[in-house]
Design a protein around this nucleic acid. Sequence first.
DNA 1: CTTTGTGCAAATTCTTTGCACCAAA
DNA 2: TTTGGTGCAAAGAATTTGCACAAAG
Lengths: 138, 138
Amino acid sequence: MDTAKQYLINNGIKPSVQRLAIMMYLLEHRTHPTVDEIFNDLSKAIPTLSKTTVYNTLKIFAEKGAILSLTIDEKMVRFDGYNQRHAHFRCLNCNKVFDIPLNYDVEFPKAEETKDFQNIETHVYHRGYCSECAKENK
Amino acid sequence: MDTAKQYLINNGIKPSVQRLAIMMYLLEHRTHPTVDEIFNDLSKAIPTLSKTTVYNTLKIFAEKGAILSLTIDEKMVRFDGYNQRHAHFRCLNCNKVFDIPLNYDVEFPKAEETKDFQNIETHVYHRGYCSECAKENK
DNA sequence: CTTTGTGCAAATTCTTTGCACCAAA
DNA sequence: TTTGGTGCAAAGAATTTGCACAAAG
Protein backbone atom coordinates (compact mmCIF):
# COMPACT_ATOMS: atom_id res chain seq x y z
CA MET A 1 0.00 0.00 0.00
CA ASP A 2 2.69 2.47 1.01
CA THR A 3 4.88 0.74 -1.52
CA ALA A 4 2.36 1.42 -4.25
CA LYS A 5 2.00 5.03 -3.18
CA GLN A 6 5.72 5.58 -3.22
CA TYR A 7 5.97 3.81 -6.53
CA LEU A 8 3.45 6.18 -8.09
CA ILE A 9 5.24 9.23 -6.69
CA ASN A 10 8.56 7.93 -7.94
CA ASN A 11 7.06 7.72 -11.40
CA GLY A 12 5.73 11.25 -11.26
CA ILE A 13 2.10 10.25 -10.74
CA LYS A 14 -0.04 11.98 -8.14
CA PRO A 15 -1.74 9.32 -6.05
CA SER A 16 -5.51 9.35 -5.67
CA VAL A 17 -7.81 6.77 -4.18
CA GLN A 18 -8.54 5.36 -7.61
CA ARG A 19 -4.97 5.41 -8.85
CA LEU A 20 -3.70 3.76 -5.73
CA ALA A 21 -6.32 1.04 -5.94
CA ILE A 22 -5.50 0.33 -9.57
CA MET A 23 -1.77 0.29 -8.95
CA MET A 24 -2.16 -2.05 -5.99
CA TYR A 25 -4.41 -4.26 -8.04
CA LEU A 26 -1.76 -4.57 -10.70
CA LEU A 27 0.97 -5.27 -8.21
CA GLU A 28 -1.08 -7.99 -6.56
CA HIS A 29 -2.55 -9.57 -9.66
CA ARG A 30 0.09 -10.84 -11.99
CA THR A 31 -2.59 -12.00 -14.38
CA HIS A 32 -2.19 -9.30 -17.06
CA PRO A 33 -5.73 -8.08 -16.44
CA THR A 34 -7.86 -6.26 -18.96
CA VAL A 35 -9.63 -2.97 -18.28
CA ASP A 36 -12.83 -4.89 -17.70
CA GLU A 37 -11.32 -7.23 -15.17
CA ILE A 38 -9.77 -4.38 -13.23
CA PHE A 39 -12.98 -2.40 -13.36
CA ASN A 40 -15.20 -5.27 -12.28
CA ASP A 41 -12.99 -6.31 -9.40
CA LEU A 42 -12.36 -2.83 -8.05
CA SER A 43 -15.99 -1.76 -8.40
CA LYS A 44 -16.82 -3.97 -5.44
CA ALA A 45 -14.59 -1.92 -3.16
CA ILE A 46 -15.12 1.42 -4.92
CA PRO A 47 -18.70 1.40 -6.19
CA THR A 48 -18.43 4.84 -7.74
CA LEU A 49 -15.47 3.86 -9.89
CA SER A 50 -15.95 4.52 -13.57
CA LYS A 51 -14.48 2.64 -16.47
CA THR A 52 -13.29 5.91 -17.96
CA THR A 53 -11.13 6.45 -14.90
CA VAL A 54 -9.65 3.01 -15.29
CA TYR A 55 -8.82 3.80 -18.91
CA ASN A 56 -7.39 7.22 -18.03
CA THR A 57 -5.35 5.87 -15.19
CA LEU A 58 -3.84 2.95 -17.06
CA LYS A 59 -2.95 5.25 -19.91
CA ILE A 60 -1.10 7.59 -17.59
CA PHE A 61 0.65 4.70 -15.85
CA ALA A 62 1.85 3.30 -19.16
CA GLU A 63 2.97 6.69 -20.44
CA LYS A 64 4.97 7.33 -17.29
CA GLY A 65 6.50 3.89 -17.57
CA ALA A 66 5.00 2.63 -14.32
CA ILE A 67 3.35 -0.31 -16.04
CA LEU A 68 3.49 -2.12 -19.36
CA SER A 69 0.65 -2.26 -21.81
CA LEU A 70 0.55 -5.56 -23.62
CA THR A 71 -0.84 -5.93 -27.12
CA ILE A 72 -0.52 -9.68 -27.29
CA ASP A 73 -4.30 -10.00 -27.34
CA GLU A 74 -6.15 -9.24 -30.58
CA LYS A 75 -9.24 -7.83 -28.93
CA MET A 76 -8.14 -5.72 -26.02
CA VAL A 77 -5.14 -4.33 -24.27
CA ARG A 78 -3.80 -6.01 -21.18
CA PHE A 79 -1.68 -4.51 -18.45
CA ASP A 80 1.31 -5.74 -16.54
CA GLY A 81 2.54 -4.09 -13.34
CA TYR A 82 5.44 -6.46 -13.07
CA ASN A 83 8.79 -4.84 -13.52
CA GLN A 84 11.16 -7.72 -14.04
CA ARG A 85 12.24 -8.98 -17.39
CA HIS A 86 10.04 -11.74 -18.71
CA ALA A 87 8.27 -12.84 -21.86
CA HIS A 88 4.60 -13.60 -22.45
CA PHE A 89 2.75 -16.54 -23.81
CA ARG A 90 -0.86 -16.43 -24.98
CA CYS A 91 -2.84 -19.60 -25.43
CA LEU A 92 -4.64 -19.58 -28.76
CA ASN A 93 -7.35 -21.76 -27.28
CA CYS A 94 -8.17 -20.47 -23.78
CA ASN A 95 -6.67 -17.03 -24.40
CA LYS A 96 -4.90 -16.94 -21.05
CA VAL A 97 -1.64 -15.00 -20.88
CA PHE A 98 1.28 -16.50 -18.97
CA ASP A 99 4.56 -15.04 -17.82
CA ILE A 100 7.43 -17.10 -19.04
CA PRO A 101 11.11 -16.81 -18.22
CA LEU A 102 13.41 -14.91 -20.53
CA ASN A 103 16.77 -16.63 -20.41
CA TYR A 104 18.56 -14.66 -23.05
CA ASP A 105 19.44 -11.06 -23.65
CA VAL A 106 17.17 -9.19 -26.01
CA GLU A 107 19.19 -6.44 -27.48
CA PHE A 108 18.21 -3.84 -29.99
CA PRO A 109 20.19 -4.48 -33.17
CA LYS A 110 22.78 -1.96 -34.20
CA ALA A 111 22.03 -2.19 -37.91
CA GLU A 112 22.69 0.69 -40.25
CA GLU A 113 19.03 1.42 -40.97
CA THR A 114 18.00 1.42 -37.34
CA LYS A 115 21.01 2.98 -35.69
CA ASP A 116 19.19 6.26 -35.00
CA PHE A 117 16.12 4.56 -33.60
CA GLN A 118 15.46 5.22 -29.97
CA ASN A 119 14.25 2.00 -28.43
CA ILE A 120 12.06 2.30 -25.34
CA GLU A 121 10.51 -1.09 -24.76
CA THR A 122 11.21 -4.59 -25.94
CA HIS A 123 8.59 -7.32 -25.84
CA VAL A 124 8.84 -11.00 -26.52
CA TYR A 125 5.55 -12.76 -27.20
CA HIS A 126 4.79 -16.39 -27.82
CA ARG A 127 1.56 -17.82 -29.11
CA GLY A 128 0.58 -21.45 -28.94
CA TYR A 129 -1.24 -23.86 -26.66
CA CYS A 130 -0.81 -24.01 -22.91
CA SER A 131 -0.31 -27.34 -21.17
CA GLU A 132 -4.03 -27.72 -20.44
CA CYS A 133 -5.21 -26.96 -23.95
CA ALA A 134 -2.40 -28.88 -25.65
CA LYS A 135 -3.65 -31.95 -23.77
CA GLU A 136 -7.26 -31.49 -24.92
CA ASN A 137 -6.28 -30.98 -28.52
CA LYS A 138 -4.71 -34.39 -28.63
CA MET B 1 1.44 -13.70 -59.50
CA ASP B 2 1.98 -17.37 -60.25
CA THR B 3 4.22 -17.39 -57.22
CA ALA B 4 1.40 -16.07 -55.07
CA LYS B 5 -1.03 -18.58 -56.53
CA GLN B 6 1.29 -21.47 -55.85
CA TYR B 7 1.98 -20.11 -52.39
CA LEU B 8 -1.72 -20.15 -51.56
CA ILE B 9 -2.16 -23.67 -52.87
CA ASN B 10 0.85 -24.83 -50.91
CA ASN B 11 -0.78 -23.49 -47.80
CA GLY B 12 -4.05 -25.25 -48.50
CA ILE B 13 -5.92 -22.13 -49.58
CA LYS B 14 -8.10 -22.15 -52.67
CA PRO B 15 -7.15 -19.17 -54.81
CA SER B 16 -9.82 -16.71 -55.88
CA VAL B 17 -9.48 -13.33 -57.52
CA GLN B 18 -9.77 -11.59 -54.18
CA ARG B 19 -7.48 -13.94 -52.30
CA LEU B 20 -4.83 -13.71 -54.96
CA ALA B 21 -4.98 -9.95 -55.00
CA ILE B 22 -4.64 -9.75 -51.23
CA MET B 23 -1.79 -12.23 -51.13
CA MET B 24 0.05 -10.38 -53.89
CA TYR B 25 -0.52 -7.14 -52.09
CA LEU B 26 1.07 -8.50 -48.95
CA LEU B 27 4.00 -9.93 -50.82
CA GLU B 28 4.65 -6.64 -52.57
CA HIS B 29 4.00 -4.31 -49.65
CA ARG B 30 6.27 -4.96 -46.75
CA THR B 31 4.58 -2.20 -44.81
CA HIS B 32 2.58 -4.35 -42.38
CA PRO B 33 -0.65 -2.93 -43.75
CA THR B 34 -3.90 -2.74 -41.85
CA VAL B 35 -7.20 -4.06 -43.16
CA ASP B 36 -8.15 -0.54 -44.14
CA GLU B 37 -4.99 0.06 -46.12
CA ILE B 38 -5.36 -3.19 -48.00
CA PHE B 39 -9.02 -2.52 -48.65
CA ASN B 40 -8.52 1.04 -49.85
CA ASP B 41 -5.66 0.18 -52.16
CA LEU B 42 -7.24 -2.90 -53.68
CA SER B 43 -10.64 -1.27 -54.11
CA LYS B 44 -9.18 0.74 -56.95
CA ALA B 45 -8.47 -2.39 -58.97
CA ILE B 46 -11.40 -4.42 -57.64
CA PRO B 47 -14.24 -1.96 -57.08
CA THR B 48 -16.64 -4.65 -55.82
CA LEU B 49 -14.27 -5.76 -53.09
CA SER B 50 -15.80 -5.73 -49.64
CA LYS B 51 -14.06 -5.14 -46.36
CA THR B 52 -15.65 -8.28 -45.00
CA THR B 53 -13.83 -10.28 -47.62
CA VAL B 54 -10.56 -8.66 -46.64
CA TYR B 55 -11.22 -9.61 -43.03
CA ASN B 56 -12.25 -13.14 -43.94
CA THR B 57 -9.32 -13.66 -46.21
CA LEU B 58 -6.68 -12.38 -43.83
CA LYS B 59 -8.12 -14.52 -41.09
CA ILE B 60 -7.85 -17.61 -43.23
CA PHE B 61 -4.34 -16.74 -44.33
CA ALA B 62 -3.21 -16.29 -40.75
CA GLU B 63 -4.89 -19.50 -39.60
CA LYS B 64 -3.24 -21.48 -42.37
CA GLY B 65 0.09 -19.91 -41.50
CA ALA B 66 0.49 -18.17 -44.83
CA ILE B 67 0.89 -14.77 -43.17
CA LEU B 68 1.52 -13.36 -39.73
CA SER B 69 -0.95 -11.22 -37.83
CA LEU B 70 0.79 -8.59 -35.77
CA THR B 71 -0.67 -7.18 -32.58
CA ILE B 72 2.00 -4.56 -32.06
CA ASP B 73 -0.53 -1.81 -32.68
CA GLU B 74 -3.01 -0.96 -29.93
CA LYS B 75 -5.89 -0.12 -32.23
CA MET B 76 -5.88 -2.56 -35.07
CA VAL B 77 -4.29 -5.69 -36.33
CA ARG B 78 -1.58 -5.50 -38.95
CA PHE B 79 -0.48 -8.19 -41.37
CA ASP B 80 2.87 -9.37 -42.56
CA GLY B 81 3.33 -11.59 -45.60
CA TYR B 82 7.04 -11.81 -45.09
CA ASN B 83 8.24 -15.23 -44.12
CA GLN B 84 11.76 -14.67 -42.92
CA ARG B 85 12.71 -14.23 -39.31
CA HIS B 86 12.69 -10.61 -38.24
CA ALA B 87 11.53 -8.37 -35.42
CA HIS B 88 9.26 -5.33 -35.48
CA PHE B 89 9.60 -1.81 -34.30
CA ARG B 90 6.68 0.57 -33.87
CA CYS B 91 7.25 4.28 -33.57
CA LEU B 92 5.28 5.70 -30.66
CA ASN B 93 5.04 9.01 -32.48
CA CYS B 94 4.28 8.32 -36.14
CA ASN B 95 2.97 4.82 -35.51
CA LYS B 96 4.87 3.32 -38.47
CA VAL B 97 5.98 -0.26 -38.15
CA PHE B 98 9.46 -1.22 -39.33
CA ASP B 99 11.09 -4.56 -39.91
CA ILE B 100 14.30 -4.86 -38.00
CA PRO B 101 16.91 -7.59 -38.13
CA LEU B 102 16.86 -10.35 -35.56
CA ASN B 103 20.44 -11.34 -34.92
CA TYR B 104 19.92 -13.81 -32.14
CA ASP B 105 18.04 -17.00 -31.63
CA VAL B 106 14.71 -16.70 -29.89
CA GLU B 107 14.07 -19.99 -28.24
CA PHE B 108 11.17 -21.08 -26.18
CA PRO B 109 12.41 -21.68 -22.64
CA LYS B 110 12.37 -25.20 -21.29
CA ALA B 111 11.28 -24.24 -17.79
CA GLU B 112 9.37 -26.65 -15.58
CA GLU B 113 6.09 -24.68 -15.66
CA THR B 114 6.08 -24.29 -19.41
CA LYS B 115 7.54 -27.57 -20.54
CA ASP B 116 4.21 -28.86 -21.82
CA PHE B 117 3.40 -25.67 -23.67
CA GLN B 118 3.18 -25.99 -27.41
CA ASN B 119 4.74 -22.90 -28.90
CA ILE B 120 3.54 -21.94 -32.38
CA GLU B 121 4.80 -18.41 -33.02
CA THR B 122 7.38 -16.18 -31.46
CA HIS B 123 7.30 -12.41 -31.87
CA VAL B 124 9.80 -9.78 -30.89
CA TYR B 125 8.45 -6.25 -30.73
CA HIS B 126 10.20 -2.99 -30.01
CA ARG B 127 8.54 0.32 -29.26
CA GLY B 128 10.26 3.67 -29.33
CA TYR B 129 10.98 6.50 -31.71
CA CYS B 130 12.13 6.05 -35.28
CA SER B 131 15.03 8.08 -36.63
CA GLU B 132 12.75 10.77 -38.04
CA CYS B 133 10.70 11.23 -34.89
CA ALA B 134 13.66 10.94 -32.53
CA LYS B 135 15.16 13.88 -34.38
CA GLU B 136 12.02 16.01 -33.99
CA ASN B 137 11.67 15.28 -30.31
CA LYS B 138 15.07 16.73 -29.62
C1' DC C 1 -9.90 30.08 -6.15
C1' DT C 2 -7.56 27.20 -9.41
C1' DT C 3 -5.93 23.19 -11.05
C1' DT C 4 -6.47 18.43 -11.65
C1' DG C 5 -9.06 14.07 -11.31
C1' DT C 6 -13.44 11.61 -11.78
C1' DG C 7 -17.45 9.77 -14.01
C1' DC C 8 -21.48 9.65 -16.94
C1' DA C 9 -23.27 9.35 -21.57
C1' DA C 10 -22.56 9.64 -26.26
C1' DA C 11 -19.63 8.96 -30.05
C1' DT C 12 -16.01 6.48 -32.62
C1' DT C 13 -13.61 2.81 -34.46
C1' DC C 14 -12.30 -1.86 -35.41
C1' DT C 15 -14.18 -6.27 -36.10
C1' DT C 16 -17.75 -9.85 -36.43
C1' DT C 17 -22.19 -11.82 -37.75
C1' DG C 18 -26.31 -13.02 -40.41
C1' DC C 19 -27.89 -13.68 -44.54
C1' DA C 20 -28.59 -13.49 -49.51
C1' DC C 21 -26.35 -13.88 -53.78
C1' DC C 22 -22.73 -15.69 -56.86
C1' DA C 23 -19.31 -18.84 -58.77
C1' DA C 24 -16.93 -22.93 -59.47
C1' DA C 25 -16.63 -28.06 -59.58
C1' DT D 1 -26.87 -29.10 -57.61
C1' DT D 2 -23.90 -28.58 -53.94
C1' DT D 3 -20.28 -26.47 -51.75
C1' DG D 4 -17.82 -22.68 -50.65
C1' DG D 5 -16.64 -17.56 -51.46
C1' DT D 6 -18.25 -12.78 -51.61
C1' DG D 7 -20.43 -8.64 -50.03
C1' DC D 8 -23.88 -5.72 -47.87
C1' DA D 9 -25.93 -3.99 -43.75
C1' DA D 10 -26.45 -4.40 -39.02
C1' DA D 11 -24.66 -5.71 -34.63
C1' DG D 12 -21.04 -6.00 -31.19
C1' DA D 13 -17.25 -4.70 -28.44
C1' DA D 14 -13.26 -1.95 -26.92
C1' DT D 15 -11.88 2.57 -26.44
C1' DT D 16 -12.16 7.68 -26.67
C1' DT D 17 -14.30 12.17 -26.17
C1' DG D 18 -16.98 16.04 -24.30
C1' DC D 19 -18.46 17.99 -20.54
C1' DA D 20 -20.05 18.81 -15.81
C1' DC D 21 -19.02 18.02 -11.18
C1' DA D 22 -15.92 16.93 -7.24
C1' DA D 23 -11.61 17.08 -4.78
C1' DA D 24 -7.26 18.71 -3.32
C1' DG D 25 -3.90 22.13 -2.37
